[in-house]
Design a binder for these strands. Structure first.
Length: 477
RNA sequence: GGUGGCGUAGCCAAGUGGUAAGGCCAGGGCCUGCAAAGCUCUUAUUCGUCGGUUCGAUUCCGACCGCCACCUCCA
């Protein structure tokens, strides 16, 4: 079965067919770097990350471009407040963005273009639009003439009259039409500016995405993603600029991520009710936050609260307990046609359900359901299977590790450097303690055995008695 | 005023024109010296309300109620 993506342009689920089967192109609207990113920003970035991971899992080549808006009103204002240069503020927050993203397990895009490094491309694009009569210059500013683009409003499903009646349209005497938007802002005293054919100034917001997407991905891109607040006017304006300039479709699939809420309201910087991603990461592991953010479908609102994070913690614990136990079978071979245990079917079913879920507009919530169903089956199997089933358990491990890594909820990397004399010594010490405890247990000296268990737990080492042995592992808390 | 979305068990959350995935929490049982982990049973005859279409609707249509968002910078 092929993939389907919900396209905001038609508000329908559509079959996904990349323009060039060799390479899927994705443009994701990135942050304006005037501050650290919050959990809502993280949700959008994470969705993009998972879309890319899944497309790679499906065998596509992907080129992902995500911009950094490093010049705008908010950055100028914030820099002034802090008494540092715009450039410095943007640089600091840009670096912080990469750091935070990386901590959330988000892999860097192939290109992270910055607005200030593409002034030339933006000027060229604006000039094309002026030449076509789609833009006009007033006192050093350039505005887009909305009524020149017949399809204006096709993304946001708005008619020209809808945009005027009752709408909160900025009053600006310079504009011919209130709907027109600026592509180039004439310089104001003290603000950063660049030379242009229309005098010193700086780019408007929407033009950067058009220019940078086209430069790095071509005139037509496959997927354009962003938060749902960008649908109008940002994305509508990107379409207007790009398509009038090139005459071809700008983006074939528009994807919009629903808001993260907090206490039932949109988490937003202007409401001052946001949780910074870096603060959340200080309290919860990467995988827990990722699990929380993908526990609902990306087009549905999700409410941030401590209870939900606690639920994700519990779910991750269940998953990791299973994977930790399964991992020891990794590498077991010997599976053949004669091997026939029910778990094999469960593995196949999980893979099929996972793919089906992700194929259908990246339904991560449903994909998690498939994964946890197999976790249940594996746990049951532990109680009943004999050692002959080891290859099947290895297969289950592979399937779970692979799918969980698409979602980024399984950290298979050893947390500490698992080499060196200290580590060996540590392991031997734990082993020694467990031996002493076993001896105590043998003579029913529960006081001593429980003391060892309790004290180890205080040291974040959790031990478990099974039928024939005692296992131990590190815990996070 | 315009546009769009949401309302599923105690909580979170998938989903389908044919009788409700998964997770968290809770309680009983099994296992265990006790824990932990795991298993197991219990937890929505029901999917905001009221109508309609249909052999049959939670799923389609209409009305209503409630909530949210965009139309202004915001992922």
């Amino acid at each position: 079965m092929g993939m389907k993506i919900y396209n905001s342009l038609n508000r329908r689920l559509e079959d996904f067919e990349p323009l060039n089967p060799e390479q899927v192109t994705i443009y994701s609207c990135g942050p304006t770097v005037y501050d650290y990113i919050h959990m809502g920003n993280a949700r959008t970035a994470l969705v993009t990350d998972i879309i890319r991971r899944y497309l790679l899992y499906k065998g596509y080549n992907v080129k992902l471009v995500q911009n950094l808006t490093d010049i705008d009103d908010k950055i100028i204002r914030r820099a002034a407040e802090l008494g540092i240069s715009v450039k410095q503020l943007a640089h600091q927050n840009g670096e912080a963005y990469f750091e935070d993203s990386q901590r959330l397990g988000i892999q860097p895009a192939d290109v992270h273009p910055k607005a200030t490094e593409h002034i030339r491309e933006m000027i060229d694009l604006i000039q094309i639009l002026i030449d076509k009569g789609a833009a006009y210059v007033v006192d050093g500013s350039v505005y887009y003439r909305v009524d020149q683009f017949a399809e204006y409003g096709k993304l946001s499903n708005r008619k020209p009259e809808d945009l005027l009646a009752g709408a909160r349209v900025e009053i600006n005497e310079e504009k011919e039409d209130p709907r027109d938007f600026d592509m180039w802002k004439a310089a104001k005293p003290g603000e950063p500016s660049w030379d242009s054919p229309w005098g010193k100034g700086r780019p408007g917001w929407h033009i950067e995405c058009s220019a940078m997407a086209m430069k790095h991905l071509g005139e037509t891109i496959d997927i354009h993603a962003g938060g749902e607040d960008l649908l109008f006017p940002h994305h509508e304006n990107e379409i207007a600029q790009s398509e009038l300039a090139t005459g071809v479709t700008f983006a074939r699939y528009w994807m919009h991520v629903a808001f993260l809420k907090i206490d039932g309201k949109r988490m937003g910087k202007s409401e001052k009710n946001f949780i910074l991603l870096r603060d959340a990461l200080d309290h919860y592991p990467t995988e827990v936050i990722r699990h929380f953010l993908i526990s609902a479908h990306y087009r549905h609102p999700l409410d941030y609260n401590q209870e939900s994070l606690t639920k994700s913690e519990g779910a991750l614990r269940r998953l990791n307990n299973c994977l930790d136990t399964l991992k020891q079978y990794d590498g077991e071979v010997g599976l053949n046609e004669k091997t026939d245990v029910p778990l094999q079917h469960a593995v196949q079913e999980m893979k099929a359900r996972f793919t089906q879920a992700m194929d259908t507009d990246f339904n991560t919530a449903q994909a998690l359901g498939a994964i946890f169903s197999l976790v249940s089956e594996v746990n049951k199997a532990f109680n009943t299977l004999d050692e002959m089933a080891a290859p099947v358990l290895a297969e289950a491990y592979q399937a779970l590790a692979e799918t969980c890594q698409v979602l980024g909820i399984y950290n298979n990397v050893e947390t500490q450097e698992e080499t060196g004399d200290n580590v060996e010594q540590r392991d031997e010490l734990v082993k020694l303690l467990l031996e002493i405890r076993q001896e105590a247990r043998n003579r029913k000296d529960w006081e001593t055995s429980d003391k060892i268990r309790d004290r180890l737990k205080e040291l974040n080492i959790q031990i478990q008695d099974t039928h024939h042995s005692t296992t131990w592992k590190f815990t996070t808390k």
